[in-house]
Amino acid sequence: MKTSRSKTTRWVTSAVAALALGTGGVALTSTPAVASTPCTVLTASGHYGGGDPWVEINNRCAGPIRVRVLWNWGYDSPCTTLQSGEIRRFNSNSTFASYDDVVSC
């Protein structure tokens, strides 16, 4: 059984190496369409009089970044540039919306 496992490991290793060579050495990996922004922070959130929700996003990155706020059950915000240190409020247009995430765009 040890021989079988070793042969399987060598075959998989060979297949991965052949795939990398066949693609010009470029690794084939799946990447998300948008990447999360690790240096942005949700600083506050609430609802206008019990209605539409809002969130405040703080850019703690060293420079300007472009972000989009994603909402569950509501339209996502447009792509917006935040300067370093800037805090901006994003509003949803739906009473039923809830904050999902902030992503780069």
Rank of each mutant, 00 (worst) to 15 (best):
S84I: 06
E56Y: 07
E56S: 10
G63N: 13
S94C: 04
C39Y: 00
N93F: 09
G25N: 04
V103Q: 12
T43S: 11
S94E: 08
N58Y: 14
A20Y: 08
G24F: 04
A62I: 11
V12A: 11
V55Q: 01
S4K: 11
T37S: 12
G63S: 14
S36T: 15
V55H: 05
L82N: 01
T29N: 03
D52V: 14
S98V: 08
V103N: 06
D100H: 03
G22H: 07
A15G: 04
W71H: 04
N59V: 02
P38T: 15
T43P: 02
Y48R: 08
A33R: 14
R66E: 13
K7S: 08
A27I: 15
A17T: 15
S14L: 04
L42A: 03
V34P: 03
R68W: 06
V102E: 01
L70N: 10
V103K: 10
A33M: 15
A97V: 01
T13R: 11
D76A: 12
A44Q: 10
D76C: 01
Y75E: 13
V55P: 03
R68K: 15
L28C: 07
L82C: 02
T43V: 14
F90R: 05
P38R: 14
A15C: 05
P38E: 15
K2L: 14
L19A: 15
L21K: 13
A33Q: 15
F90T: 05
L28M: 12
W73D: 14
G85L: 02
D76P: 01
F90C: 04
L42Y: 01
R68M: 12
S92E: 03
D52C: 02
T81R: 00
R5N: 10
N91Q: 10
K2T: 15
G50D: 13
A44C: 08
R10C: 04
D76Q: 09
V26S: 02
K7Q: 09
G22K: 00
S104D: 10
R10D: 15
S84R: 05
G25M: 02
F90M: 00
A62E: 12
V67I: 14
V102W: 00
K2A: 11
L70H: 03
V67H: 02
V16H: 00
L70T: 07
L70S: 04
L19K: 00
S98W: 00
C61H: 08
I65G: 06
E86D: 02
A97N: 05
D76K: 02
S30I: 08
T40L: 00
Q83C: 01
C61N: 12
I87S: 02
N58G: 01
N72A: 05
T31V: 12
Y99L: 03
A27Y: 11
T13Y: 00
R5T: 15
A17M: 09
M1V: 04
G85I: 00
S77G: 04
L19G: 04
A44P: 07
P38G: 11
K7H: 07
N93E: 14
R68Y: 01
P78W: 07
V26K: 11
C105T: 09
V67Y: 01
S45W: 10
P64G: 08
W71E: 00
G74S: 09
D76W: 05
N72H: 06
S14V: 01
V67P: 02
T95D: 12
A20N: 09
T40K: 00
T29K: 10
T29F: 07
G25R: 02
G22T: 13
S45F: 05
L19D: 05
W73P: 05
W73I: 09
N91A: 03
